[in-house]
Amino acid sequence: MAGFGGQGVLFIGRLLAHAAMKEGRNVTWIPSYGPAMRGGTANCTVVISDEVIGSPVITSPHSLIVMNNPSLDAFEPRLKTGGLLIVNSSLVTHEAKRNDITVVKAPANKIAFEIGSDRVANMVLLGAYSACTKVVTKENILEALKKVLGEKKKHLFEINKTAFEKGLETGNL
């Protein structure tokens, strides 16, 4: 998953990793880290497997969530043949170039804005991804959300949950 710093790509990666752990799978989460600035790019890689996980960094992933144009340009060529590309169509204006992959577009910022906050666009996309792949259950994502938000940010649970559910609907279309 990739986007601008601040869009919450590392956050949804963590939720996915938490949910996978809850389901007893092996999982790794690794952020791209380096000298960064506000508005720069951010991405993380989550590997979920029933086997022991070797490399936490993957040359060609099965799925990709992109939240902005630079991420689409950078990572689309690396997606596996037959892979899944989830696109935030509110901000991504470039078109995906490949025809050997499945592209699912979700106007994440628009949906998030309608339910009350632009900032949960990431959750819409995680919802769309979950609906398409069914790699983890909705219950476990929500469980993970509760855990990662913790006591301090408990008040953000509902809006994140709503955004995730809207995303599930988008992905199920």
């Binding site: 963590r14 092996n26 999982v27 790794t28 989460w29 690794i30 952020p31 880290y33 936490p56 960094v57």
Partner: peptide, 10 residues
């Protein structure tokens, strides 16, 4: 190394 430090695993 930096990978071990930054990555998460259960």
């Amino acid at each position: 190394d930096g990978c071990i430090g930054q990555m998460m695993e259960p």
